[in-house]
């Protein structure tokens, strides 16, 4: 193990490490802790310049105010309405494409694979004008469907990379044996491969959930009003309305961050397995 396990070091070093851990963590999360504190401060404190002292009381009402004086609930709901169908769509499509690219040998296999990979890295701006135009022409501008359709298509790139590599690492004999038995191609996919890729589906689902929930650019480009905008774009416009009402901005930020954070803590293992794909050989 590197660095040397702390247990093998002097007692002084061990104590120093035990102290350093929480200190580093607090420093690391300092901006976040500050915002969390602010979200619980009554506005009267902020007006009097009490930004860092003890709050005169814990104003949980800030969180209610966020919902009361803005379409916050609608923004949050829209986020779920975009995120969940995208998650299902992109994972489903990539199971198919990943399987095709991992199992079959055909001309152009690698080329198609690398097109998916490369497409995944391009700047959003090179897609912006045509995608917006296309969405308008399909009558889907400023709709949840229009936004979700684009996300499905774009995320298919990353998901295909992931699925293809995952399926490729499965034992090939399983598929060969089934073929010898005369099992049809779809049957092999559905009854043999799909049950084995469950961990990959879990990992991709949490990742896509987080990516789409946190998307801001496409929300700004493809949606406009409180009826359709997800929470990221919503926070942007609320930030404009709540000038200097930092207790509301803070409470709103914390609320907007909650779903992906919850997802992360619930599915931590899958989440990290997904993100670090390829980090070990």
């Amino acid at each position: 193990m590197f660095p040397r396990p702390i247990q093998t070091m002097s007692p002084a070093a061990r104590t120093a490490y035990k102290v350093a851990l929480p200190v580093m963590l607090v420093l690391w999360l300092l901006p976040l802790l500050g915002v969390a504190m602010t979200s619980l401060r009554p506005s009267s404190d902020l007006a009097q310049g009490n930004y860092f002292g003890m709050p005169s009381y814990l104003a949980f009402s800030n969180y209610l105010d966020v919902f009361r004086n803005s379409p916050f609930a609608s923004y949050m709901l829209n986020s779920f309405r975009v995120t969940i169908p995208t998650m299902i769509g992109a994972v489903a499509l990539s199971c198919l494409t990943g399987y095709a690219l991992a199992v079959y040998k055909f001309k152009g296999n690698l080329l198609i694979f690398f097109l998916f990979v490369a497409g995944n890295f391009v700047p959003f701006q090179i897609l912006m004008v045509p995608v917006r135009d296309l969405t308008v022409k399909m009558g889907l501008y400023d709709t949840i469907t229009g936004l979700a359709l684009f996300h499905v298509a774009f995320q298919t790139g990353f998901c295909t990379l992931f699925m293809r590599n995952f399926i490729k690492a499965l034992p090939r004999e399983l598929i060969e044996a089934a073929r010898v038995e005369g099992v049809g191609e779809w049957q092999i996919f559905w009854h043999i491969v799909m049950p084995l890729v469950r961990p990959a589906i879990a990992a991709l689902s949490v990742l896509i959930f987080t990516f789409i929930w946190n998307d801001y650019f496409w929300a700004m480009v493809l949606t406009t009003g409180a009826d359709t905008q997800p929470i990221t774009a919503g926070l942007n416009s609320l930030n404009g309305q709540w000038v200097a009402a930092w207790q509301l901005v803070s409470a709103g930020s914390i609320l907007a961050a909650l779903p992906p954070v919850a997802m992360f803590f619930l599915m931590q293992k899958h989440f990290i397995a997904g993100l670090t794909l390829g980090a070990v050989k």
Partner: peptide
């Protein structure tokens, strides 16, 4: 197997 995914990717990423 590739068709649906490739179609979407073509329409929304490669052609744009």
């Amino acid at each position: 197997f590739l068709a649906p995914g490739m179609f979407m990717f073509l329409i929304y990423v490669l052609i744009p």
